[in-house]
Amino acid sequence: MNNDLSWMLDSALEIPGALHAVLISADGLLMARTKEIGKDDADRVAAGMSGVQSLSRSLAFFCNGSQQQWRQTLVEFDGGWVFLISAGQGAYLGVSASPDVDMADITFRMQQLVGQLGKALMAPPRESLGARP
């Protein structure tokens, strides 16, 4: 887990009704999580969301042609919602929320967070200035 990104996910939980947030790679690996969800559960969520995103992309043709770009998947359960959006090249942001969450607020916050995460994910790795190979 990337602890440097986990703190950024906490801003998604500032929306009333938001429960958990995870950042996952396209291949279903957990990249970061909020502290309210355990690592084992977050790993399961990451794998599942990767599959959901893949299935969602395969349905693009159903929405007026096969050249449609996937943007978001929303799943409703009796106990709440799961939102899944692209978070940059090869990464996805997933947020769970209670049934009474303001959907406009949570999706807006997620888009803001994706902008911040995108900058962090695109930043070049730090070089160790004192170490020599």
Rank of each mutant, 00 (worst) to 15 (best):
P124V: 02
L84W: 09
A47C: 11
I24M: 09
L93E: 00
G130M: 05
Q72K: 14
D105C: 14
P125N: 03
N2G: 08
I85H: 07
N3G: 07
A97E: 01
D10E: 12
R132P: 02
G28H: 13
L93A: 06
K119M: 01
A91R: 11
S96A: 05
L13R: 06
A131Q: 12
D78S: 13
Q72G: 12
L93S: 02
F62W: 13
S96Y: 02
N3F: 05
F108C: 10
V82F: 09
D102E: 08
R44Y: 03
A123S: 02
Q89D: 14
V114G: 05
S11N: 15
S11H: 15
A46F: 10
M1D: 07
E76C: 06
S56L: 03
D100G: 13
P16G: 05
A26F: 06
S96L: 04
Q67D: 14
I15N: 00
E14H: 07
G94T: 00
A47R: 09
F83G: 09
M31V: 14
M49T: 03
H20I: 03
V95H: 12
F62I: 01
S11C: 14
I15L: 00
A26C: 10
F83W: 12
E36V: 14
L30G: 04
P133C: 00
I106S: 05
A104E: 07
D43E: 03
L19Q: 04
A91P: 10
L59P: 08
A21V: 01
A87H: 01
L59R: 04
G94N: 06
L29I: 10
D10Q: 10
F77W: 14
P125S: 02
L129W: 04
E36Q: 15
A12W: 06
S25M: 06
H20D: 07
T34W: 08
Q112H: 08
L74V: 08
Q53K: 14
L30N: 02
R57D: 05
S54H: 08
W70N: 15
L74M: 07
Q89L: 15
K35E: 12
E76V: 14
D10S: 10
V101C: 09
A123P: 02
Q72P: 11
A42F: 06
L29Y: 11
F83T: 05
K119W: 01
A104L: 07
Q69G: 13
T34P: 08
M31C: 14
V95Q: 13
S66Q: 08
D43K: 13
S25D: 03
Q69D: 06
I37A: 11
G28K: 07
F62V: 04
Q116R: 12
A120I: 00
S25Q: 03
S98L: 13
